[in-house]
Write a protein that binds this DNA or RNA. Structure first.
Lengths: 344, 344
DNA sequence: TTGTAGGCGTTATCAT
DNA sequence: ATGATAACGCCTACAA
């Protein structure tokens, strides 16, 4: 193991002071061409890179940003993260990701990030994305927000005053539901998500409101908030089959849930879209890779990641909120999983 | 923005020296219960956490590990990463992920990680996973390996001497191919991957060898190394359809490719497994979530991530290779996408 | 049991 | 144009 070379050593070997080496490194023009060349040669030879830990300490800035992600194995979050990472690197920052699953709780994850001295962070919180966040959650977020710039992803309850970027959940689900209704569907089901979550609430109430525009009400027997995975979709559909009350169209919380829904449909010889229509949310490669391709609500995770990172950088330099709410448009992408009901 | 409190301030407020505070923090027993309590109180009150940048500098160890991942949006890599992250956190380390997509090239990503002073790293390299890695790639990896402990994931060509963990690619694909042959299939296709890659080579040659056990040879017309995504699977199948030469069974490089293959099959009314059998690799939620559920080669990404991290920690403390090759067993998980050919 | 002081590898200010 | 030198926040001998 060759011990890493330090600036000190490099400097003495070059016959200059560390100050000069530092100047060369930071492209400070106050160095004669001659010495610059000499130093640069040694840098190249040793493949020397400044110790960013030391640099962070003296500069009082780590050039690291944190991102708390719920579940990176969900393509939706992966897309969001990747775009943020790309942008961060372009701007000279390292993005430090931590999944909420990894620590006991979000609080720990956030504190770990702060301890690492990230210059700012993007948080996709489940704790604060509650219809009724715990009082201590709100307090904790407030103190965190006083310590460093934070951008939230997803719309928090109004008790939290920080800037955030969020998709147009309501508009997306309104459009999706209206589309199904306009096709002639009347027995609509909602599958996935979790009852106490604000995002789910936003989407579900949009769903309900669209129904009521047609004089309909959401049927509790066709509502199944079973979670966020493919298995949740399976459970939801199986539940409907058991009760014998089948919808003629389903809207899911995300692509994973839709995957499970489609699986049960195929298994039960329910043809999509002939017997049942499906609309998913996320428009990831999953909705595009299935057959039929799923009609899906595109809430543009890449754009969310990008806007969040941009907002964070602005917040960091401006020391003030750039634009406290950034909305990402939702687009309904119509594909093969939706059609008029045969009975209509 | 409340400025973060430092140990200095905390110490003076507590009426002790920084040394004492430090002792409390590191649970050094050489502190009287009385002062320990007094200091701890202030720590709690201010929610004080030591600056890990400063700590890293003096301890000459960052407690950060790096992980270079090819594509975190692939559930296979996500699973691997998440398990490694979990373990790292349990052992008091922060895992710093960087995707090869994010920088111009792997070299840059690795250098960035080193610059951040990670104490060791896990690399899933595409550059070195070549049948013929570039000479400079090998040289670069060698120099990197001299700077810090590195564990590779995937079997490198023998020119690289470092420790690595790798799935039993050969055994997995042998088993899969033999299984199809034993069912009576004779027209086997291989879809996905990239021709110049070592991992692909390992899998494909196992595929070929199993065929030759039955006196058969791989048919170039049924080999389609089109890449790693769902679209690659689509392209592969479409190619077969165009040439009019359809296989009666397909083995793919991974679940994503299989997703595309199944899509085309469904689209073309090729029933799976009646008309065509499919075996994928990865056994992620995708293979489990499709209908029919896919027979899949499970190469246990979680276990890979776990073993890699454990090996890395050992390598770090032992200053020597713990066990230079760790093989992860591949298991063929038989599900509904494979059956005897109808014509058989 | 507690405090003093030097140093970790950089950067940046102030001389020269 | 270059070089001392003092931080940055923490840890750890060594002293007391």
């Amino acid at each position: 193991m060759t011990p890493k070379i330090t600036m000190q050593q490099l400097a003495s070997e070059a016959g200059v002071s560390t100050a000069t080496v530092s100047r060369v490194l930071t492209r400070n023009p106050l160095v004669s061409e001659e010495t610059r060349k000499r130093v640069q040669e040694l840098i190249d030879r040793y493949d020397y890179r400044p110790n960013s830990v030391a640099r962070s300490l003296v500069r009082q800035q780590s050039n690291m940003l944190g991102m708390l992600v719920q579940d990176i194995s969900n393509p939706y979050f992966a897309a969001m993260y990747l775009q943020a990472e790309k942008l961060a690197n372009q701007r000279g920052y390292t993005l430090l990701m931590t999944s909420s699953l990894s620590f006991q709780n979000e609080r720990e994850s956030i504190l770990a990030l702060i301890e690492r001295q990230v210059d700012g962070m993007i948080i996709i919180s489940t704790n604060i994305d509650m219809k009724q966040p715990a009082k201590e959650t709100l307090e904790f977020m407030e103190t965190a927000r006083r310590k460093l710039p934070i951008i939230l992803i997803n719309e928090p309850v109004r008790a939290f005053a920080g800037p955030y970027v969020a998709p147009e959940n309501r508009e997306g689900y309104l459009a999706a539901t209206r589309y199904l209704l306009s096709l002639g569907h009347r027995e609509l089901a909602f599958i996935g998500g979790n009852d106490d979550t604000n995002t789910v609430h936003l989407r579900y109430s949009a769903f309900c409101d669209a129904l009521s525009e047609y004089g309909l009400a959401s049927n509790p027997a066709l509502t199944c908030m079973t979670g966020y995975t493919a298995d949740s979709g399976v459970q939801g559909m199986l539940h409907f089959l058991e009760t014998g009350h089948l919808p003629d169209a389903v809207i899911t919380f995300n692509d994973l849930v839709a995957l499970g829904v489609l699986k049960v449909c195929t298994q039960q010889n329910l043809r999509v879209p002939d017997d049942i229509s499906i609309i998913s949310c996320d428009n990831s490669y999953i909705s595009r890779g299935l057959m039929p391709e799923l009609t899906s609500i595109d809430i543009q995770p890449e754009l969310q990641g990008e806007k969040a990172l941009e907002a964070l950088l602005k917040l960091m330099e401006a020391k003030e909120v750039p634009q406290s709410v950034i909305r990402i448009p939702a687009k309904l992408i119509v594909r093969g999983s939706t059609a008029r009901p045969r009975r209509a």
